[in-house]
Design a protein around this nucleic acid. Structure first.
Lengths: 337, 337
DNA sequence: GCGGGCATTGTTATCGATAACATTCCCACA
DNA sequence: TGTGGGAATGTTATCGATAACAATGCCCGC
């Protein structure tokens, strides 16, 4: 049995202790001008003494806005999304926002709708959606227009603010690098074709080959896993004419490396391989993997900036920020034998 | 310029449309008995028609509890923590809870205190702390006793509810397996020694060797990265007497594999290697890695169950749940040459 | 020395829900 | 036929903050 515990102090308690009205306490809390320095100090002291913390629910109720940003992400341990989330949370915390995650097993319409609804229930001040596939875009059409939304890796044509890594340029740099080494052409193991990321990398790959007047080999498409990279690698290993492979992410590249190794094709002596992402382990693959680094931190910060911008002005301006990618050269690339 | 937008409907709007009082609407929403079936239906219809959604802030204000669970985790792309978070969010969503993440760059006292404060500001109904190091435990001592807390991978001696993978048993299985293959002893590349996970794996390793009457080689300790695994691997590769290595996670194992490969020591022919975690890529290392799988989903669900239990009864019972780990045999282990 | 204006502080209304208590309605039963 | 009582519903208070407005107090110029 218990006496309901001493409930945590409210603003009036602070006011009483400081000998002022609760409104003055509120003013101190919100850094209003026109509070005498001495009063401010008294109030601060009272706050500290009581260990008072403002009740966000009450504030949200009266102001109509929460200090919460909802993130919709795919429940996956893919390196990219996971990093993004962590980076975003850090950035948001620095500006006083909390982040509520809603993860979803698949990026289909219904799952996304459900998560978005949960977030709207919480009256999030804004939404960030890591929406790498087209089906996500559809589901998101139903987000009320007045809710600020920023997409990460989403559909460039969706008419919403978007932050994305420059997939095309990243892919171009990778392919360019291989051609510069003297390879006749470059094979590509792509991610799922419905992902925008994949699409960008594929198109950068294709463009670069065409511009160089090279033959474009058939596309090998996979999911993002090492398992499928391995599968694709088994095919590639069997074809002696393959001397250069651009894999759409580092895990695919890992699978490719192993398949090549199993069939005795040496990397980079017989075949050069480039990945994408620069996961921390990439430098320790056998051999160390040349890859394209994306700065998830930059993406996260850009997304937050756009979101805060939308929240401030009610302008629904749909800006697009493209974050550069950078080729990291390691030992998995060499001129053809 | 705008007319402040039609604010979203409140309970009174629903009540007016349904021709009842707002209290009746509240009762319908909360599944109270004593509402005539016909009334209930009218209210439901009105809710649907207006697209009404309850304001959580208002509810939280009056009931004094939020439907929010705070998670404190390390901002890292380490496989374990990231997976854990995703799994936990899923589980929580199924029971109607939202999850607010607070990530922290380092698990030191101050950072943790700051994140915990942010969560308490939000009046979370409970906290889950992924606190793999001792310094975290200290910081958490200051969490008010009435806030339900569950630790994941935390200090078994902290006197709070704890869910953890059976690190000791996992390590024992790994070492046992190597000894069974005929190896004379097993070297260990551990994670940071201040992590409880590391401590458990180290002690499982040591115990098993001692019980088998084997010599315990010096411990090589590292962080969790492939880079440090590589460093440790370079030392091991130089020592011909090393025939079996147990790495504290798969990334370390990756680094070890590469170092061995560089010095021409074949795996598993010359040296057997076992990792820990079973990251999805482990099956595609060169060679495929034998490792110990932890079920993060089970951990997450167990943590949620404990937390909900604490929230229901005010009992501060400090239960501990230990989730088993499982040896996954692949090709990186063989009898000594 | 008086009134205008600004800095400072206080008072009251409000957000949207639930809790506690009040009221109505209806039926069974003495 | 009056009445006790439970089911169904309504009324009012409340949570803890901010907003809008009201009320001081003080300085200063004329």
């Amino acid at each position: 049995m218990e006496t309901k515990g001493p409930r945590s102090p409210a603003m009036t308690d602070v006011a009483r202790l400081a000998g002022v009205s609760h409104q003055t306490v509120s003013r101190v809390l919100n850094d209003h001008p026109n509070v005498k320095e001495q009063t401010r100090l008294r109030v601060r002291a009272a706050i500290a003494e009581l260990g008072y913390r403002p009740n966000r629910a009450a504030r949200a109720l009266v102001t109509g806005r929460s200090q919460l940003i909802g993130v919709v992400a795919r429940n996956s341990m893919l390196y990219g999304p996971a990093s993004m989330l962590a980076e975003f949370e850090q950035a948001a915390a620095d500006t006083g926002f909390a982040v509520s995650v809603g993860s979803v097993r698949e990026l289909d319409r219904d799952s996304i709708s459900a998560v978005v609804d949960r977030h709207l229930d919480q009256r999030v001040a804004g939404l960030v959606v890591i929406a790498q596939v087209a089906s996500a875009t559809e589901a998101l059409a139903e987000i009320p227009a007045e809710v600020p939304v920023v997409f990460i890796d989403g559909d460039p044509a969706a008419g919403r603010s978007l932050v994305t890594v420059d997939q095309v340029a990243g892919a171009r740099a990778a392919v360019r690098h291989l051609l510069d080494q003297g390879h006749e052409t470059v094979w590509h193991v792509s991610g799922p074709t419905e992902w925008f990321d994949s699409a960008g990398r594929i198109s950068g790959w294709r463009q670069t080959l065409l511009e160089a007047g090279r033959e474009v080999p058939p596309l090998l498409s996979a999911d993002w896993s090492a398992a499928e990279g391995y599968r694709a690698g088994q095919m590639l290993a069997r074809m002696p004419e393959v001397t250069a492979v651009f894999a759409a992410n580092d895990h695919l590249a890992l699978g490719v490396l192993r398949a090549l190794h199993e069939r005795g094709r040496r990397v980079p002596h017989d075949v050069s391989v480039i990945g994408f992402d620069d996961v921390p382990e990439a430098a320790f693959f056998i051999p160390p993997l040349t890859t394209v680094r994306q700065s998830f931190g930059d993406v996260a910060r850009a997304a937050l900036t756009l979101l805060l911008g939308q929240m401030k002005e009610e302008s629904g301006a749909a800006d697009t920020v493209i974050v550069p990618a950078q080729l990291v050269k390691r030992e998995s690339v060499a001129p053809p034998a």
